[in-house]
Simulated assay, not measured.
Amino acid sequence: MTLRWGILGAAKFALHHMGPAIHAAKGAELVALATASPDKAAEFATFAPGLQRHDSYDALLADPGIDAVYIPLPNHLHLEWSLRAIAAGKHVLTEKPMTMAAAEFDQLIAARDASRRLVAEAYMIVHHPQWQKARDLIADGAIGRIEHVDTAFCYDNRAEPSNIRNRAETGGGGIRDIGVYTYGSVRFAAQAEPVALEARIRRENGVDTFAQVAGEMEGPDGSFTYSAITSMRLFPRQEVVFQGTRGLIRLTAPFNAGLFGEAQLELHRGGGQSELFRYSGVNQYVLQVEAFGRAVLQGTAYGCPLEFSKGTQAMIDRVFEAERAI
């Protein structure tokens, strides 16, 4: 069986990453794209021959030949078009953040339950084996009890003022774009939730370009301190470190694995013991599409349900509530 996919909008991310991933994934077929531009559709057709173009999003949603829809639209449009896609009877995978506030997830959860369709946020890192390994090591006590976690995700797009990430009206800002990783990844791997947070945020033209978050999170073995940096104005950096009473886990390309660098997980323990786990050639976008397809076609559990994504959005909401300007 094959899941037939359509994409709403010819976003660059869809062109370079998710479109090819859908085409390459087992059990998936990219069959349609909604765009008014024949030239943009032609770019997608270079890797997906025979791709059908619809002139509007509504026309694609009305196509009975499409089972699932991927939505890479600007942030402020995610909720509306996710709900419209569910109402059209499609399974839905929407880019992060799926909503602008945690409470809005309740609409998605209710629509998902009523429709009996799979609806999920495109949080690809939970499908990557490096994050599954980190979660398993922590749960197995490989580094003892976690005492501190620090995360960082930075890039520099100051030369792109028209980029949707630099525009307040499209729901831009570094926290919504990449805080979802520095916050949600710790929730996933450590099975932890925030207890107290402080945030120092710098803004330009209404969007956050730098945020430093510090606080405390609570996991199965107790609380630990937490810090995170996100920025759209710093030299590129990605790193996550889980520091425990008996060891340390470091992920050196935790979020854009294979693009920022080779995915590697370092495990350091007492007596100078260390192990290095390398994940060359793993495409987390393909893994995400395949996991989505198995959940729809075979009824397997999906690794990132809406309830988890709502929790990460709730943490993002708390960061904004704790904002202190710098």
Rank of each mutant, 00 (worst) to 15 (best):
R4C: 06
K12Y: 13
K26N: 11
E29M: 09
V31A: 13
V31C: 09
F44A: 06
P49E: 14
L51E: 02
Q52M: 07
D58P: 02
A59R: 08
L60H: 04
L61M: 12
L61T: 02
I66H: 02
Y70N: 02
I71C: 04
I71G: 01
L73N: 05
N75G: 07
R84Y: 14
A85H: 08
H91N: 11
E95Q: 12
E104Y: 07
E104C: 01
Q107L: 11
A110Y: 07
A110K: 14
R112I: 02
D113E: 15
S115K: 06
R116K: 15
R117L: 05
L118F: 04
L118S: 07
V119Q: 06
V119A: 07
I125L: 14
I125Y: 15
W131S: 09
Q132I: 05
D136F: 07
H148I: 01
D150M: 09
C154G: 00
R158Y: 05
E160V: 00
P161N: 13
P161L: 10
A168E: 10
A168F: 05
G171V: 04
G173R: 06
Y183E: 10
G184R: 06
V186G: 03
R187L: 13
F188K: 08
A190G: 04
Q191H: 12
A192Y: 03
I201V: 12
R203T: 04
R203F: 01
N205W: 08
A214E: 15
G215Y: 14
E216W: 05
G219F: 10
P220N: 14
S223L: 07
T230C: 12
S231K: 07
R237H: 13
R237I: 00
L251R: 04
P254W: 03
A257S: 15
G261A: 15
G261T: 05
E262W: 02
Q264H: 11
Q264L: 08
R269C: 11
S274G: 09
E275C: 03
L276Y: 13
F277C: 01
N283A: 14
Y285F: 14
V286D: 09
L287I: 02
F292V: 03
G293D: 12
Q298T: 04
Q298F: 08
T300I: 08
G311S: 08
M315P: 00
F320E: 08
E321Y: 06
R324D: 11
I326C: 13
